[in-house]
């Protein structure tokens, strides 16, 4: 489909809008995301050392309980309304780590709480995070399939 030509008024308006548009502070946002995301990762590292020290987890196996704990902490922080403030400040820094996953689940659950436990919370809780779970499970399946095939071919 051919792109419609813009009229002079439209072009002028675009120029005017461009002049008044607030510039996004990309470098500042990146720095904030880096610092807050890094802080989350530091906490995660401390938690994994805690599990290594006091429980029978090795570096190989400590990932699962650490992720679960981080998600749990994110759930609590979201429930108390603290995570939203962190999210506003840090942007992607709070969304990319596994805590963002916990936030996505609990915020959807809180949002639909009034619609009931089954049709509200149950059916909407994974509205945002469901795609992440499906993607993770499916990609794990594909990788496992490829590995198995290579293993069979390689003997």
């Amino acid at each position: 489909m051919q792109k419609q030509q813009k009229t002079i008024e439209q072009k002028n308006y675009e120029k005017l809008q461009g002049k008044h548009e607030l510039k996004r502070p990309i470098a500042k946002n990146c720095l904030k995301a880096f610092l807050v995301g890094g802080l989350f990762c530091t906490v995660g590292q401390a938690i994994s050392y805690f599990y290594i020290y006091f429980f029978n987890f090795t570096e190989q196996t400590v990932g699962n309980p650490t992720s679960a704990t981080m998600v749990f902490i994110a759930l609590l922080l979201t429930g108390f309304g603290i995570y939203d403030r962190i999210g506003q400040f840090a942007g992607a820094g709070s969304a990319v780590p596994v805590t963002g996953f916990g936030n996505a689940i609990i915020s959807a659950a809180i949002e639909h709480r009034t619609e009931g436990f089954v049709l509200g919370v149950g059916s909407n809780m994974f509205k945002l995070a469901g795609s992440v779970i499906v993607f993770g499970v499916f990609s794990a399946f594909v990788v496992a399939l490829i590995k198995t095939l290579f293993g069979m071919l390689g003997g």
Partner: peptide, 10 residues
């Protein structure tokens, strides 16, 4: 039995 794992080291 060779390992660089922290837990095994501890």
């Amino acid at each position: 039995i060779v390992s660089s794992d922290y837990k095994i080291f501890l």
